[in-house]
Design a protein around this nucleic acid. Structure first.
Length: 898
DNA sequence: ATTAAGACGTA
DNA sequence: CGTACGTCTTAATG
C-alpha cells in the first residue's frame, strides 16, 4: 500500500450481497459438513474476507447486513428488487453462520431497520472520510460505485470469490465513461436489472454517458430532453418517469443514525478459541490455515507499536495540555481517589489520547487557570471522554465542585452489557480478556508496552499506572463498542440511552441519600437486643445448658442428636436448620426450643439490620447507599453499603425498621410509587395470552380474577384460600416453579399441586407455550433477550448435567421477565428524572427497589409529583396491558407504603 | 486476614 | 426440586 501507514483504513462490507455472490460462485454440492449443513456461502464469504484483510490491511472493519427485503425503497416502489427469485433453500441459514464467523473474528455487524446495507455503508463511508480515514468498500451491488472518490475505493467481486476489481474513480470512469459522482445519473438512464429498475430501452452505458457529459448530468439531460435526436431520444422521452424514479431510488443515504461511528470499529483481532470451534464445526481446514497464517503474521504488529508517552503535569501545565491534546477526539480518563457513600475524593486524574501522549495531574495542585480549564473540559459535552466506571468519578468530581459530561462510553457498563454474568468488571481483567494486555507498568518488557515516561527522575510508578489505565480504557472502548455492535444496535442503544444516562441519575440518588432517624434506630436496636437476649435465655433454659444459637453446626448437634428430632432436608454439612424446616419441626413435635430458636433468629436478624443501618448513617444524618449497575445478570440494580433493597416489610416488627427512614428537614413527606405485578404484566405481554391480558384489562384484583378463571367461579365467589393458591402460582411462574415447589410452598400434596397447575394452564395456555418457547429459543440462540434487547448468555442450556441444564432453563425463562421489568423501571427512572428537571419541582428521587421508587416530596408538591410519577412510570414502555402504578405518601417509608 | 457455607431479608 | 440480589455469623482456612 502506498498510503501512509498511520492513516486508519476502514473496510466496509455489504454482508448479504457478498454472501450471495459467494453462494453462486461456489458449487453448493461441494460444500457441506458431516451434519448436512451447506457452507458454500460461508466459505466463499470468509475466503473473500481473508483476502481483503490480507490485501487491504484495514485497521477498522464493519459489516452491514440488510435486515429484510423490505426498506423505504420498497415502500416507494413496490417492485423494487422484485423479480429476484426466492432465496434458495441451501442459502438459508448460512447468513447466521457468517455472522458467527464475524463474531469469532470480533468484527462488528451493523444493521438499520428499513434501510439497506448500502445505505449504512454510505453513511459510514461519509463519516469515515470526514474523520480522515481511508475507506475500502466491498459490495456486490453496483450502486456502491457512486461512493467512489479519492480515498474511497470499491472492491467489486467478479468471477468466483478470489478476484475483485478495484473500482477507483479512475476505473469507474474508464469503464462507464462517467465519474462516480455521475454514476447514479448513468444508472438511472440505463436501469439496473438486479434492482428491477428498468431504464430507457436502447440506451446503454455509452449513450447514457454521452448525454450526461454533453448536458452536464441527468438534470441537464432532462432539461434538454427535446433536443435529443433519434430513436434513443424518442425512447428517453417515453420513459422519463422511470428514469426519475430510478434516480430517486438509487441514491444511497449518507446520513443515517447509527449505533456506532467509524472510529468505534477498530479491529483488535479475533477470538482464537471461538474461531477454532467454529471452523471445526464448519470443517474449514484449509481456510483456517490461511486465516491463521495471515492473522499470526499481523498479530504481533497489532499488539506492539503501542507507545504510551506519559507526562506528569505540574501546576500551570494542565490547561495548555488539555487544549492541545483533549479536544475533538475521544480520550481515556482514569481517576484515583476514595469513593463511596454518595461522595468521593479525587487524588489523581490521568488523560490518555488515542495515539499521542498521556498526562497525569493532581487535582489538588492546580493553579487558577488550570482549575478553570479542567472544570470546563470535564463539563463540556463536546469533549468526548471514555472512562471505566463513571459513577464514582462523577460523585468525586461533584464533591470537588466539577460537573462531568461528555462521557461517550463507560467500559464497565459496556462490558456488563456484553457479558452480564461475569463475576466482576475490573479494568485489569478486561484489558487481559479483550486487549490481551497485562495492565501493569512493570510488566516484563516483551514488546507489548513501550512506556517512556517523563518522570523528572522522580518515582512516578503510581502516576504511570493511572495513565496506563486511561489508555487501556480508551482501547477497550473500541473493542467493546465493536463487541456490542454485533447485535445490530440493541446493546449500543441500551448503553447510550439507558445505562450511561442512568449512571448519572443513580449518582444523584446516592449523593442525596435518605434521612434516617438515628435516635429511633438506637431505641430499636435496644429493643431488639433485649428480645434477642430473652429468646436466647429461654432457649438455654429449655435445653438445660448454654450453646451458641447462631451456630447452625451446634444447632444440628442439639436438634438432631441430643433432642433426637426428625431429620430435615439434607445439606452439605448435614441437615438444614432453616426457618421453614424449623416451622415444620415445630408443627410436628411442638418442641418449645424451636419456638425460642425461631424467635431468636428473627430478632437477631432485625438487630443486625438495625446495627448495620446505624453504622452507615453519614454526618449529614442520611444514609447513602451505593447502587451497583453491573452486578445482576438480569439487568437489575443492586444496592450495597448498606443494602436498602432488603429492608424488612413482611412482618410488623420488621416494618418498624422502615419507620427509621424518614423525610428530610426541608421536605414534607416521603412518597413511594411501585408497579403492581409488573412481572406478570410482562408475561401477559410477551405471551400474548388473551385470558391473562383480559384478566389485567378487567381492572379487577388480578389474583382474584385469575383464581376465578382457574376455579370456574364468579369473581365475588373466590375464597381467600383459592386466591392465595393462585397468587402463589402467579408469582412462581416467572421463576420456573415446579409442581413439587408449589406443593411445598402451599403445603398441599404433589398431586393437588399438579392438578392446580394443569387447571391453570388450561385457562392460560399461552403462558405455558411462551415459557416453553423462550427456553427453546434460548437453547438455539445461546442467550435470552429482554424487551430492550438486553442479553444473558446461558451456555449451560446444553449441559450434559441435568441439574445444571434445568437450572439454566429456569434462568432462561426468568431472565427475559425479570430483565424486562428492570429495563422498564430504568427507563421510568430516566423519564421521571427528566420530567422532574423540566417541571422545576424540587422533589427528588432517592431510592429504587426493583419495582418501586422512593421520593422525597418538597412542600406543596405532593399532587404534582404524584401526577408526574404516575405519568412517567405508567408510560415508560407500552405493553399490551396497562402498567399500573400505586402511590403512597407518609412521613416515613413505612407510612408511605401501601 | 480471608473464604465458604448457612441463613434470611427484599423484589 | 423457584429467579435475582447483599449481609451477617460462624467456622475453617491462610
Amino acid at each position: 500500500m502506498s498510503d501512509d501507514a498511520t492513516t486508519p483504513r476502514l473496510l466496509l462490507l455489504d454482508g448479504h450481497s457478498l454472501a450471495y455472490r459467494a453462494y453462486f460462485a461456489l458449487p453448493v454440492e461441494n460444500f457441506s459438513t458431516a451434519t448436512g449443513q451447506h457452507t458454500n456461502a460461508v466459505f466463499g464469504f470468509t475466503s473473500m474476507l481473508i483476502n481483503m484483510l490480507r490485501d487491504e490491511k484495514p485497521t477498522h472493519i464493519v459489516v452491514s447486513f440488510d435486515l429484510s427485503r423490505k426498506s423505504f425503497r420498497t415502500e416507494k416502489y413496490a417492485d423494487y428488487k422484485a423479480g429476484r427469485s426466492e432465496t434458495p433453500a441451501p442459502f438459508q441459514g448460512q447468513v447466521s453462520l457468517i455472522q458467527e464467523v464475524l463474531e469469532a473474528l470480533r468484527i462488528p455487524v451493523v444493521t438499520k431497520e428499513n434501510y439497506e446495507a448500502d445505505d449504512v455503508i454510505a453513511t459510514l463511508a461519509t463519516q469515515a472520510r470526514a474523520a480522515g480515514m481511508e475507506v475500502i468498500i466491498s459490495s456486490g451491488d453496483r450502486d456502491a460505485f457512486q461512493l467512489a472518490e479519492e480515498h474511497v475505493t470499491i472492491l467489486y467481486p467478479v468471477r468466483g470469490v478470489s478476484e475483485v476489481w478495484r473500482m477507483t474513480p479512475e476505473a469507474i470512469e474508464a469503464k462507464y465513461f462517467v465519474p462516480p459522482s455521475r454514476y447514479r445519473d448513468k444508472a438511472a438512464l440505463v436501469g439496473e436489472s438486479s434492482d428491477n429498475l428498468t431504464g430507457v430501452p436502447g440506451v446503454g452505458d455509452k449513450t447514457a454517458a454521452k448525454w450526461i457529459n454533453e448536458y452536464g448530468g441527468l438534470d441537464g439531460v432532462i432539461a434538454n430532453v427535446d433536443k435529443i435526436k433519434g430513436k434513443a431520444g424518442e425512447s428517453l422521452r417515453a420513459h422519463l418517469a422511470e428514469v426519475m424514479r430510478n434516480y430517486e431510488l438509487n441514491a444511497l443515504i449518507r446520513d443515517l443514525e447509527l449505533p456506532l461511528r467509524p472510529e468505534d470499529v477498530r479491529w483488535h483481532g479475533w477470538d482464537r478459541e471461538a474461531v477454532h470451534q467454529l471452523f471445526d464445526a464448519l470443517e474449514f481446514r484449509v481456510l483456517r490455515e490461511r486465516l491463521y497464517s495471515y492473522l499470526e503474521a499481523v498479530e504481533p504488529e497489532a499488539e506492539s507499536g503501542f507507545d504510551l508517552a506519559g507526562q506528569v503535569l505540574r501546576a500551570g501545565e494542565v490547561a495548555g495540555w488539555l487544549t492541545e491534546h483533549a479536544a475533538a477526539a475521544p480520550v481515556g480518563l482514569a481517576v484515583t481517589g476514595s469513593f463511596g457513600r454518595g461522595t468521593g475524593q479525587v487524588t489523581g486524574i490521568a488523560v490518555a489520547t488515542g495515539s499521542g501522549p498521556a498526562a497525569w495531574f493532581d487535582p489538588a495542585a492546580l493553579d487558577e487557570t488550570d482549575e478553570r480549564a479542567v472544570a470546563a473540559w470535564l463539563a463540556d459535552p463536546a469533549r468526548p471522554k471514555v472512562i471505566h466506571d463513571a459513577k464514582p468519578a462523577l460523585l468525586a468530581f461533584r464533591a470537588h465542585g466539577w460537573a462531568f459530561d461528555g462521557v461517550t462510553t463507560d467500559t464497565a457498563l459496556a462490558a456488563y452489557l456484553a457479558k452480564p454474568d461475569q463475576r466482576g468488571y475490573d479494568l485489569t481483567d478486561l484489558a487481559l480478556r479483550y486487549l490481551k494486555r497485562e495492565l501493569k507498568v512493570d510488566a516484563p518488557d516483551d514488546g507489548q508496552l513501550a512506556l517512556s515516561f517523563d518522570g523528572d527522575g522522580q518515582d512516578t510508578a503510581a502516576e504511570e499506572g493511572v495513565m496506563l489505565r486511561a489508555r487501556a480504557t480508551l482501547d477497550l472502548a473500541d473493542v467493546l463498542t465493536a463487541e456490542l455492535s454485533r447485535d445490530g444496535g440493541a446493546s449500543q442503544r441500551l448503553l447510550a440511552e439507558v445505562e450511561l444516562p442512568l449512571a448519572v441519575v443513580l449518582a444523584e440518588m446516592e449523593s442525596k441519600g435518605i434521612a434516617a432517624d438515628t435516635g429511633y434506630l438506637s431505641e430499636l436496636e435496644a429493643t431488639f437486643a433485649a428480645e434477642v437476649k430473652a429468646a436466647q435465655q429461654a432457649a438455654h433454659e429449655v435445653h438445660g445448658r448454654e450453646f451458641n444459637l447462631g451456630s447452625p453446626k451446634q444447632l444440628q448437634e442439639i436438634l438432631f442428636v441430643e433432642r433426637n428430632l426428625p431429620k430435615t432436608r439434607k445439606i452439605k454439612s448435614g441437615y438444614t436448620t432453616d426457618a421453614d424446616s424449623l416451622q415444620d419441626l415445630f408443627a410436628k413435635t411442638e418442641d418449645p426450643l424451636l419456638a425460642h430458636l425461631l424467635r431468636y433468629r428473627d430478632m437477631a436478624k432485625l438487630k443486625s439490620t438495625v446495627d448495620g443501618l446505624l453504622k452507615s448513617v453519614s454526618d449529614d444524618g442520611r444514609i447513602h447507599t451505593t447502587f451497583n449497575q453491573t452486578v445482576a445478570a438480569t439487568g437489575r440494580l443492586s444496592s450495597t453499603d448498606p443494602n436498602l433493597q432488603n429492608i424488612p416489610i413482611r412482618t410488623e416488627e420488621g416494618r418498624r425498621i422502615r419507620r427509621a427512614f424518614v423525610v428530610g428537614g426541608e421536605f414534607e413527606q416521603l412518597m413511594t410509587a411501585d408497579y403492581s405485578q409488573i412481572e406478570m404484566r410482562i408475561m401477559a405481554h410477551l405471551s400474548k395470552d388473551e385470558a391473562l391480558i383480559a384478566a389485567f384489562n378487567s381492572g379487577a384484583d388480578f389474583h382474584a380474577a385469575t383464581a376465578s378463571s382457574v376455579f370456574h367461579v364468579e369473581l365475588d365467589q373466590v375464597t381467600a384460600d383459592q386466591r392465595r393458591k393462585i397468587k402463589a402460582m402467579n408469582y412462581g411462574l416467572a421463576y420456573g416453579l415446579s409442581s413439587f415447589g408449589l406443593s411445598n410452598q402451599l403445603t398441599i400434596s404433589n398431586d393437588e399441586a399438579k392438578a392446580l397447575m394443569e387447571e391453570y394452564f388450561q385457562r392460560f395456555g399461552g403462558v405455558r407455550d411462551y415459557l416453553k418457547a423462550v427456553v427453546l429459543q434460548a437453547g438455539k440462540d445461546g442467550y435470552t433477550a429482554t424487551i430492550l434487547g438486553r442479553r444473558r448468555y446461558l451456555p449451560d442450556l446444553s449441559s450434559d448435567n441435568r441439574q445444571r441444564r434445568e437450572m439454566a432453563e429456569r434462568m432462561a425463562l426468568n431472565a427475559p421477565i425479570q430483565g424486562s421489568a428492570a429495563d422498564i423501571i430504568k427507563v421510568a427512572m430516566l423519564k421521571v428524572d427528566a420530567a422532574l428537571r423540566s417541571s422545576g419541582l424540587s422533589s427528588r428521587m432517592l431510592l429504587q427497589v426493583h419495582d418501586e421508587l422512593v421520593f422525597e416530596v418538597a412542600p406543596g408538591e405532593r399532587d404534582a409529583l404524584e401526577e408526574l410519577v404516575r405519568r412517567e412510570m405508567g408510560g415508560a414502555y407500552p405493553l399490551s396491558v396497562p402498567l399500573e402504578v400505586s402511590v403512597g405518601t407518609g412521613r416515613d417509608w413505612n407510612g408511605a407504603d401501601h
